[in-house]
Amino acid sequence: MKAFSDYHPLVLLVYFLSVLVAAMFVNNPVIGLLALLGGILFCIMLSKRSEAAGNIGFYAPLFFMVAITNPLFSHNGVTPLFFLNGNPVTVEAFAYGAAIAVMVIGVMMWCKCYSAVMTSDKFLYLFGKAVPKLSLVLSMALRFIPMFKRQTHKVSRAQKSMGLYSSKSFIDKIKSSMRVFMAMLSWSLENSIETSASMKARGYGLKGRTNFSLFRFYPRDGVLLSVCAVLLGVTVAGIITGDTAFYYYPRISELTFTPLAVAVYAAFGIMSFLPFMIEVKEALKWKYYISKI
């Protein structure tokens, strides 16, 4: 399932940032719930089925922990349920705790999707032009990581075949890993200097050099970007006019359903479910083509 992640990185970044900022900072229960639901559905599409049980086991306790601890720290609100050590435990604080829990889990879900969709190559493509030196350091570091792992493996096997540190004692193990690490460090520093010499020889940083990239901006990327812009515009309009304003303290305010507020909920709902809908559409298309064979 990767229909959504095939869109242009710029579109994906704009999309994720708008959803994340709205989910994180707009204090409205409807928007929070929509973000949470959209995030969960998208996450289900992206992750394997075997991970589901583990995820529920992690997020459900987290939800209750965040929701229930809030009244212990916050004594705002005007409707006390009972008193604990002379401090009121209020309905409002419970409601606020639940809202924060929805927000926290929703944001975590979206961040999980972000990590799965915005892989490091897309990240580097986006920031490569704006910050060329930093993204060079980033991409080299990313390339060094698997190289280091391989080299560590090689060095330690060589050490073992020489018969060094073959006993099972703990001190011996630490000593041997220390030795392998130092060998690796010297090797990687020397190796990297060689790389830099080679880069210089090939004219790195000279004027007129171009970069290779796999990403192209197709018409469908433009369509998705404009759809996002319109939906975001409606959402921001609702926040500015205060139609979606919502307060927990001192007394829980009522949800407003002015035409603009309804429009905002609809717009943000579409935005939040967009990746899920795209994935489902692609899955159905795939099923349809398969059935024709």
């Binding site: 030196k133 980033l138 570091a141 060094f144 280091f148 520093l189 200097i193 790389t195 210089k200």
Partner: peptide, 26 residues
Amino acid sequence: FIRFEKSATDIKRLVLLAVMVALSVV
């Protein structure tokens, strides 16, 4: 980040920095 981008940093320094970053990540 801006200072780093503007300065005339040697490629050698860039690469060494990448090594140190990679080491801490590993």
